[in-house]
Design a protein around this nucleic acid. Structure first.
Lengths: 242, 242
DNA sequence: CGAGTACTTGAGCGTTATCAATGCATGTGG
DNA sequence: CCACATGCATTGATAACGCTCAAGTACTCG
């Protein structure tokens, strides 16, 4: 067809455009947009790179921007006044950060290792969503997905034992790692043991011990301190208890 | 003005209409609609009454309907395969039940005491939302609010002690009870001690003991087994630790 | 290669769970 | 109207799981 071969039609989303090779495109909120709309959307914001350990925003800061992860992993955490920490979650490539209607951030977001993301001013972002109902629905889907995740974590924190929490966590990470090595599911754990502990409502020492227990039970095999292979997926799932 | 005095304009939302005296109207999702739209909205669904203990829906059931609470309290809970229970939350008048995109319910919903609610087939409800963007935004707000609540509960379950959980819970219930007796905030606890325990990730005995502790510390005074007065709101807030 | 940080392992303890008994309402039948 | 059953709440005694404190090991990075 003539239109598809038209130079302008081709150039609407050309190689060289920052979104062209974006590995997160299919998972991110931009998946609700066609190539033409993505170009317009991208113009609303900018790319931002974070060095390992760098903070994107602080708990309680004015929520002036929203973000869409493209590379790396963020740790989303919150402190009690006396310093006890809880890690609310981790943001992976494709994850949207900023599902809220409040005008302050609900958590501190820090990069684990180097990371990159797209950053959009909230006002412009919200105006864009107003004009693009599919994006609105995609955002509602993101909120609903976060809610599902939060509920499963409520069950984990409220009722599961340390071993069960550890098993559930490894399965969750294996799912997100979403790669297989020699047929066996691999899980990458880019965060520190401390982060895992604060995510699971345990102490570092307990995380270490439970991980050792899983190794001893031959359910997993460590291939590095931040990477393991699930050698017995069924056994691990049975231990995870849901 | 002429139009406001017009008989038809008056009759659009008359006494006698089921929504006319609805005590939840201002808080519920219907608050996104004008009187005219509420009448149309109401026609999509029906009223449903639940006897004490009756189940509205089961965890895993096909999610064919969504609900809006008008009277009473629901307990939203989920079981692990081995029977351990977690109470995900309680639905009070004005609360919307059914923020999700999944086709199965995420929890079992049971009435604590008698309850009543409006019930809408999901397909019709979603079509209506499609036609009424304000309702869509109100629904997104409901999802965002649930997310805020879930996050605060993650911190509670992951990092707080039994005493802190109990204090936080009483403050939450006092907020929702939203009434004062002789200047002192009152909290009604319509649910059983077992429900409270499963909500806070504790055992019944611990709930009983911690409640006794709060009484002994003169932070609260019981006026009945399901009702108390917060005699020292600041002290209780300090104990709640956030 | 050395210093610092992160992780692991060990020993003992404390908070909360578990098990058991009792108290206290509410309802039912004799 | 009382005896009894039933269900929920409270209280007590003991145990266990995960925490705390402490030491030791293995990375990482200048």
């Amino acid at each position: 067809m003539y239109l598809l071969d038209h130079p302008q039609a081709e150039s609407r989303f050309a190689p060289g455009h920052p979104c062209y090779e974006c590995p997160a495109r299919a998972q991110a909120v931009c998946s609700a947009l066609d190539d033409h709309q993505v170009v317009a959307f991208r113009r609303l914001g900018c790319t931002r790179e974070l060095a390992a350990g760098e903070t994107l925003c602080w708990d309680g800061d004015a929520a002036t921007h929203v973000y869409s992860m493209t590379h790396g992993v963020l740790r989303l955490s919150k402190l009690l006044p006396d310093g006890r920490r809880h890690v609310m979650g981790f943001a992976f490539p494709g994850d949207f950060v900023g599902v809220t209607l409040e005008d302050r951030h609900a958590f501190t977001a820090e990069a684990i290792g180097d990371a990159a993301l797209c950053q959009f001013p909230r006002s412009r972002f919200e105006a864009f969503v107003e004009q693009h109902p599919r994006m609105g629905r995609r955002l509602y889907a993101a909120a609903a997905a976060e809610l599902v995740a939060a509920r499963s974590r409520l069950m984990l924190l409220g009722r599961k034992t340390a071993a069960e929490r550890m098993a559930s966590f490894i399965l969750e990470m294996a799912r997100r790692t979403a790669q297989a090595v020699a047929g066996e599911p691999r899980a990458s754990l880019p965060m520190s043991r401390m982060d895992i502990a604060d995510y699971l409502g345990l102490r570092v020492e307990t995380v270490s011990r439970e991980l050792a227990g899983l190794k001893a039970a031959r359910l997993v095999r460590m291939t590095g301190i931040h990477e393991l292979i699930v050698t017995d997926p069924d056994g691990l799932a049975a231990l995870a208890a849901d």
